[in-house]
C-alpha cells in the first residue's frame, strides 16, 4: 500500500508553473531517490508535499488521506517532514534546542525525551555538542542536526533535500549510511540528490525529473542501468 501518493500535481510560484503533472508514490519503509538536474523541480515537489507551496491541481495523500490544502503545521503533525536543502539549522540556538524545535507538534512534544534519546543514539556527535550553538558546528554536523531535527517529529516519511551538498566524500558516506538506518527504523525516506550515483546506491527505487515532469520511474538498478538516462539526465 502506498504511504504517500502524488497524482497529477501541478504547482508553481507567483503564477509561474514549475510542476506539470507529477505522479509519485512512496511505499512503507523504502528509500526513494528523486533525481534530476538543477531546476528540474525536485525541491518544488518537496515544498508542495510539505504544504509550503499549495498545489494548483492534482492530489497528495498520506495513507489515503488528503494532504493537499492542509497547512504546513498539519502536514508536519501527520508525520511528513521536510529537511531543507542547505541544512538551515537555527544558528543561535543550542543543538538540543534545535532538536526540541523539531519536536514542535503536540504528539512529538509529548514523546520528546524518548525521541531525543533515539536521535542521540543515531548521532552520538550531537549528544557531545548538545549545548553548543548550532551555528558553530561543522557542515557535516549541521547536516546531522538537520536530519536529527527532522526525526524529532517522529516522521512516517522523511524528505531530505540534498543532504550531501558541500560535504566531503567521507561524510557523504556517513550521511547515506544514516539514511539506511533511518529507513530500517521504519521510516520512509524520499531522498533528493544531485549526486545520483550515490543516491542510487542506497535507494530501492528512483524517479527522474526534468522541466517539472517525471520522466522515468523504476527500480534503482533499472535507472542506473539505462545508459540513455544516465547520460542525458544524471550526468553519469
Amino acid at each position: 500500500m502506498a504511504l504517500l501518493e502524488l497524482t497529477g500535481v501541478e504547482a508553481g510560484y507567483a503564477g509561474v508553473q514549475v510542476l506539470w503533472g507529477v505522479d509519485l508514490e512512496l511505499r512503507e519503509r523504502e528509500i526513494v531517490a528523486l533525481l534530476g538536474a538543477n531546476g528540474a523541480g525536485k525541491t518544488t515537489v518537496l515544498r508542495t508535499i510539505s504544504g509550503i507551496v499549495k498545489p494548483w491541481r492534482g492530489g497528495i495523500s498520506l495513507q489515503e488521506q488528503h494532504l493537499d490544502g492542509l497547512s504546513p503545521r498539519e502536514i508536519v503533525s501527520r508525520g511528513v517532514i521536510h529537511v531543507p536543502e542547505g541544512r538551515h539549522v537555527f544558528p543561535r540556538m543550542s543543538v538540543v534546542d534545535n532538536l526540541r524545535a523539531g519536536a514542535y507538534t503536540e504528539r512529538a512534544w509529548s514523546h520528546q525525551r524518548e525521541t531525543l534519546e533515539d536521535v542521540y543514539g543515531l548521532f552520538p556527535r550531537l549528544y557531545e555538542r548538545r549545548s553548543q550553538f548550532a551555528g558553530t558546528l561543522s557542515g557535516g554536523e549541521q547536516q546531522m542536526l538537520a536530519i536529527g531535527r527532522g526525526l524529532m517529529a517522529r516522521p512516517k516519511c522523511l524528505m531530505i533535500d540534498e543532504p550531501s551538498l558541500g560535504l566531503a566524500p567521507k561524510l557523504v558516506d556517513a550521511v547515506l549510511d544514516l539514511v539506511i538506518r533511518i529507513r530500517d527504523l521504519g521510516c520512509t525516506v524520499l531522498l533528493v540528490e544531485q549526486n545520483a550515483q550515490r543516491a542510487l546506491e542506497v535507494a530501492e527505487r528512483a524517479y527522474v525529473m526534468e522541466h517539472g515532469r517525471i520522466l522515468f520511474a523504476g527500480a534503482s538498478a533499472a535507472v542506473a542501468g539505462d545508459p540513455a538516462i544516465r547520460q542525458a539526465y544524471l550526468g553519469l
Partner: peptide
C-alpha cells in the same frame, strides 16, 4: 482574475 497569486497561499 489573474492567477498571479495562486500557489502562494503560504505567502512566503
Amino acid at each position: 482574475k489573474q492567477p498571479s497569486l495562486r500557489g502562494e497561499s503560504w505567502k512566503h
